[in-house]
Amino acid sequence: MHEHLTHAELITALDTAFQQLPEPAEPPQRCYQQLIRGGTERIPLSHAAHRTAAAMVTVTPPGIPVLMPGERTGAPDGPLLRYLRALEAFDRAFPGFHSEAHGVTIDPGTGDYLIECVRPPR
């Protein structure tokens, strides 16, 4: 387990995710309106680049949100998605020792992390 955490550079990914904050894209209240009216979708991290979050994502520890409603997820290789993918990989490698990631749903078939994002305009 320690070797996996070291190789994944999880601490570095966490530190970088909190130093390079996500870009605000929409007001949180608009995201909430979309959430309650069916204007959102749960998507895997592999498709989440440059999307707008509809719900808060908080990983415990440390228990501080890494993504708030209305913020963009950033680039596929950006700090936020890199950190969440490292947690996802840890969860797959060590079932039963998963992280507490509020705002993340785990697909029972694939183990993919799914996050709620605002549907893009048609």
Rank of each mutant, 00 (worst) to 15 (best):
A13Y: 01
I64G: 05
A101P: 01
D91A: 10
E71K: 05
P108H: 05
P28F: 00
H50N: 13
P27N: 14
L21M: 13
M56F: 09
H7G: 06
M68W: 12
G103R: 01
S99R: 03
P28Y: 03
F18Q: 04
P121I: 12
S46C: 07
R51P: 06
A101K: 02
P120S: 04
Y32E: 12
Q34L: 11
C117M: 09
P69W: 00
P108E: 08
R122P: 15
I106D: 08
A49Q: 10
R42V: 08
G78H: 11
D77G: 11
R51L: 13
G74E: 04
D77H: 14
P120I: 04
L80K: 05
E41P: 01
H7L: 07
T110V: 08
P62M: 04
G111S: 02
V104Y: 00
R37S: 15
L84V: 09
S99C: 12
G111D: 07
D77K: 13
D112P: 00
S99H: 13
T73W: 03
V59R: 03
L81R: 00
P120V: 10
I36M: 12
S99G: 07
E3H: 14
Q19R: 15
Y113F: 11
A101V: 12
V118P: 03
P79M: 05
R82L: 08
A8Y: 11
I115P: 01
A54P: 06
M1K: 11
R72C: 12
P76Y: 09
T40Y: 05
P95M: 11
Y83S: 09
R37E: 12
R30Y: 08
H47F: 14
L84T: 02
A101W: 06
H50P: 03
T110D: 03
D112R: 10
S46Y: 11
C31T: 03
T105I: 09
I36P: 06
I106P: 04
G70Q: 08
Q33K: 09
G103Q: 10
P28G: 06
I43G: 02
R85C: 01
